[in-house]
């Protein structure tokens, strides 16, 4: 299916459009926030610590609409810029692991043989250790840094995509149009890229939506276990973990990033569901 028809079809799904708009809105707000927020996300100011939210009453952004954290930093500022960190991580991880997964899936599905067997057994092994445990070990070994976090999540993330794309490749491998292009002398790479890959796009997009949201969630888990984005740089994950000790005194420190995170993951889930709905053969209209 052509990409343009794909987009046109999806624009008709309410679920997709709601999710998509929400994501665009969240991304734009977070990405631009460093230019219009009034506080520094990292510099602490102990005289201002644990201020309650004033809900824009004290001069809007110049006050602390969502309060301050235990180190006196503005929660809203950290929320937006931390969001940008989390979104970037999720984006990079999703992009790279999808690309690797798609590549591996196409190759293994198309060529089969020993290589396929070996890769699939590796997938089996990786899938039988819970992701978070594996990630925990790897980050612990490499040391926690942004790069290592991304590396680890990518190293684990390609597996599910590879399986999805492989099954699509296996299904299309013997279809007529593939054999036809082979007869016509198309190169293997051309067949893989132009004929087989497009069949996997829908599945890939659904998987990507789910994986994007999943990555954001895993980042919070790792942050909580001390293996996330290193402080003082904010991310939704470490904001939530930082608030643990002040849960009773300053619940807003935890609640704000949690809700932002939930909305974001929700938006991605909506988008994924929207895509699924559009392409569900049971949905005729």
């Amino acid at each position: 299916m052509k990409f343009s028809t794909l987009l046109r079809k999806m624009s008709k799904s309410i679920l997709f459009m709601v999710g998509f708009s929400l994501i665009v809105l969240i991304i734009l707000t977070c990405a631009t926030s460093s230019s219009w927020t009034q506080w520094s996300p990292t510099i602490s100011k102990l005289t201002e610590r644990l201020r309650e939210p004033d809900w824009f009453a004290n001069g809007g952004l110049a006050g602390h609409p969502l309060g301050t954290d235990p180190l006196g930093r503005d929660v809203l500022t950290r929320l937006l810029q931390g969001g940008w960190t989390s979104l970037q991580i999720a984006f990079i991880v999703t992009l790279i692991s999808m690309s690797i997964g798609a590549f591996v899936g196409l190759i293994t599905g198309y060529f089969g043989g020993v290589f396929d067997m070996i890769v699939m057994r590796i997938c089996d092994v990786l899938m039988s250790i819970p992701n978070i445990m594996l990630a925990l070990c790897v980050v612990a070994i490499l040391g926690s840094s942004m790069f290592n976090l991304i590396f680890t999540l990518t190293a684990i993330g390609w597996v599910s995509t590879a399986r999805i794309v492989r099954s699509v490749a296996l299904k299309t491998k013997h279809q007529e149009f593939i054999s036809a292009s082979k007869v016509l002398g198309a190169s293997t790479w051309r067949i893989l890229w132009k004929e087989m890959f497009p069949n996997a796009i829908t599945q890939l997009m659904i998987a990507a939506s789910a994986y994007f949201g999943g990555t954001i969630l895993v980042e919070t888990n790792l942050s909580y276990l001390g293996m996330g984005v290193p402080v003082p740089q904010p991310s939704w994950g470490n904001m939530i973990s930082d608030g643990r000790q002040y849960l009773a005194a300053a619940p807003w420190v935890v609640i704000a990033p949690g809700i932002a995170l939930m909305l974001t993951v929700l938006a991605f889930n909506f988008m994924g569901d929207g895509i699924r709905d559009v392409f569900d053969p049971r949905n005729k209209n």
């Binding site: 994950g237 643990r244 849960l247 935890v254 990033p257 949690g258 995170l261």
Partner: peptide
């Protein structure tokens, strides 16, 4: 869509 860490904190709260 909920973070399990966050959910834990909210439950405790």
């Amino acid at each position: 869509s909920m973070s399990i860490v966050w959910l834990g904190f909210v439950l405790i709260l």
